[in-house]
Amino acid sequence: MGKVCCCNKDSLAKQDEAIQKLFRSYAPGEKEALIPILQETQGLYGYLPKSILYLASEYLNVPVGKIYGVATFYNQFRFDPVGKYLIQVCAGTACHVRGGGLILQALESELGIKAGETTKNSLFTLSTVACLGACSMAPVVTIGGEFHGRLQPKDVVKLLRDYEMKE
């Protein structure tokens, strides 16, 4: 009679302490924990590293395809590291009517990336946001948490230069 030897590779043990702690706060195979694990992973890394999704697949016994499906369903999850400066372009009503779309276009063409992407040098990540609550300054953009209001497309080049100069 054969009993199978169980030499399960413990992939979790190879990971950083923080990620081990994160996973161990949930039971192996606890499928309901998928979204909290994804949220906490993003909290740790700022994005969802591929290897952690594979780890979650093994830990929760959920195919990695399913995990990727869940993660892409929600806008909150990202799959690439955020650049040093997160640029948030307001797409709220006030900013929209005062030319927020043109500011986004100018940023996209100046950085050579689309909203949701990060520059090759990992300095800037461009994103849009529904409203920054600073309508009086419309159109408004935040860069690394700093507000820049009443922008015109031509201001964008200088603005980005100022941040690049800080490096």
């Binding site: 590779k9 992939s11 190879k14 990971q15 950083d16 990620i19 890394y45 590293p49 591929k50 290897s51 952690i52 999704l53 594979y54 780890l55 093994e58 990695v64």
Partner: peptide
């Protein structure tokens, strides 16, 4: 065919 992602010690890929 163990997924190569699981052999990566560091998560900074």
């Amino acid at each position: 065919r163990y997924p190569k992602e699981l052999n990566v010690a560091s998560t900074k890929d």
